[in-house]
């Protein structure tokens, strides 16, 4: 009986990948890496790695009576990629080391919530002020097509249960319109994670409609060069698929104590929506009346809601 060292190493690595992904799910760290919508996909990957590990186990030992090289069954030489049977050398050591890096960092370095420094790399305030502009032009095209379903209230007295909604990432179009309609009637707008993007888009595109309304929101503090002393951005990250595709969203806000609040501090604030200009762009800003520091929320990221278009 022969023991194949490299095959064993490969088995260990496959198992470690499976274990790392399971571990990320167990500890909840996975939510800091990918949109929860894709959690099941990543669980499937952990299972697949485990299956491959089991398959790999059969290759660790071979019996001298039987040829251990599976390609030999075909009677022809067919090995053009490495089956892990060729001698071990420095090059291979290097390539196994590379495979171990993500395993090590995945197990031992905790995932970090994206912070203001990344927000700045992503374009920061420049992107935010342009989002308003984009929304304005988008709104222009939207206005040209009459919206048919906006008129009737589909739910009547039975408004959807907010607790049920919290977990979903897809809503039918009618519900989306309903939410938007509801928003324009509300006196105080509460920006919860679930509806953040819907409200955010609407406030940015029709800022004048919301001027003077009260708003309650949470976010982390982002500051940039060129801000006045009383200015900061209450920002969030929007995650489509994984945090590598995050983009920055948030409101420019004004409060007297702004200069005393450090970047990356999470705060919960209430204030009034107003319209102001930043670098020549008109945009909604929030005049903050009350605020308090909070711990970083368990769900720091915002995920886009897919609107199911009824055909």
């Amino acid at each position: 009986m022969n023991f194949h060292f490299q095959q064993a190493i490969r088995a260990v690595i496959l198992f470690a990948f499976s274990a790392m992904i399971f571990n990320l799910h167990q500890t909840g760290e996975i939510t800091k890496l990918i949109n929860p919508k894709y959690e099941n996909l990543s669980k499937t990957v952990a299972i697949l790695f485990f299956i491959l590990f089991v398959v790999q186990l059969t290759r660790i030992f071979s019996f001298s009576t039987k040829d251990h090289h599976h390609c030999h069954h075909t009677g022809h030489h067919c090995c053009h990629h490495d089956h892990g049977n060729s001698p071990f050398n420095t090059k291979k050591l290097f390539s196994y080391l590379i495979l171990i890096i993500p395993l090590a960092t995945g197990f031992f370095i905790p995932a970090k919530t994206l912070d203001a420094s990344i927000a700045e790399k992503k374009g920061g305030m420049m992107i935010l002020s342009k989002q308003t502009q984009a929304a304005e032009t988008e709104d222009f095209t939207e206005a040209a097509i009459p919206n048919q379903s906006a008129g009737d209230d589909l739910y009547g007295d039975h408004a959807p249960d907010p607790n049920l909604m919290e977990e979903r990432q897809e809503i039918p179009e009618e519900e989306y319109d309903h939410l938007k309609k509801e928003l324009s009637q509300k006196q105080t707008i509460h920006m919860t994670n679930h509806i953040y993007t819907i409200y955010y888009d609407d406030i940015n595109s029709n800022a004048s409609k919301y001027k003077g309304k009260k708003i309650q929101l949470t976010g982390f503090v982002l500051k940039e060069k060129g801000f006045k002393q009383n200015q900061l951005v209450l920002s969030r990250f929007l995650i489509t698929h994984c945090i590598a595709d995050s983009s920055i969203i948030g409101f420019l806000s004004e409060l007297p104590e702004a200069q005393n609040i450090d970047e990356d501090t999470w705060i919960e604030a209430t204030g009034t929506i107003d319209i102001s200009t930043y670098n020549g762009e008109q945009l909604p800003i929030i005049k903050i009346a009350n605020w308090k520091k909070i711990e970083e929320p368990k769900k720091p990221y915002i995920y886009p809601i897919d609107i199911r278009v009824g055909l």
Binding site: I21, L24, I30, K32, L33, I34, Y38, S42, V45, P102, T105, G106, I109, A111, K112, L114, D115, S117, I118, H241, C242, I243, A244
Partner: peptide
């Protein structure tokens, strides 16, 4: 940050 983004790309 680098490590988190790196892992996230990989998991994705």
């Amino acid at each position: 940050n680098l490590n988190t983004i790196f892992l996230s790309i990989l998991i994705e």
